[in-house]
């Protein structure tokens, strides 16, 4: 990738694509929840304040940034039309599977540990975490595939725009 220098160990491409995926995923979720009327019943979440919300979002953002750094480590998103996107998509799905597992499993674990104080059995905490890891992996794989396609599509769109600009200048 040529978009050096790095900041916080991340290239701009990695930071931008990871943040785009998180923000677009969040916006589509909020839009769908609002349009269906479900958001009115969900927000505000009882017993879940602003600070936990910010921490949960920060946790997801950090996970996606780390995963995206690994996904784009080989060649980034540049010149995707010159190579098969299958390997990139496979890495995207693998990265998102890990993100989903760590995110939902992590939330299940923290929620379970908090619940220990109100009498939840340790076995229930372990099961909650396990279901979170497995469910998060499945959900993450699906989301990773969809956003992998979107990201590759955007990269190809950007290449097409830049090619067109180069053609105009050469004429």
């Amino acid at each position: 990738m040529a978009d050096r220098p790095l900041r916080f160990g991340l290239s701009l491409e990695t930071a931008a694509v990871a943040t785009f995926d998180v923000v677009a995923f969040g916006l589509v979720g909020v839009l769908a929840g609002h349009a269906s009327g479900a958001l009115r019943d969900l927000l505000p979440v009882p017993g879940f304040g602003t600070v936990p919300g910010i921490l949960v979002f920060g946790y997801l953002w950090a996970l996606v940034l780390l995963a995206m750094r690994w996904v784009l480590a080989e060649d980034g998103l540049s010149r995707t039309e010159d190579r098969s996107p299958v390997r990139l998509l496979a890495r995207g799905v693998a990265g998102a599977t890990l993100v989903g597992s760590a995110f939902v499993g992590g939330l299940g674990l923290v929620g379970g540990l908090v619940g220990l104080r109100s009498g939840i059995e340790p076995l229930s905490v372990a099961l909650l975490t396990l279901f979170g890891v497995v469910g998060g992996a499945l959900g993450g794989a699906l989301v990773g595939f969809v956003f992998g396609l979107v990201d590759v599509g955007l990269a190809r769109g950007a290449d097409a725009v830049v090619d067109r600009l180069a053609d105009r200048r050469s004429r």
Partner: peptide, 24 residues
């Protein structure tokens, strides 16, 4: 949502132009 999609495209265009050393 549409603006964020367009912005991702803008960022990638900026990066491609920079990679190619193009002045646009």
């Amino acid at each position: 949502t549409a603006f964020v999609v367009g912005s991702a495209l803008r960022t990638l265009v900026v990066l491609r132009l920079r990679e190619r050393g193009a002045i646009a």
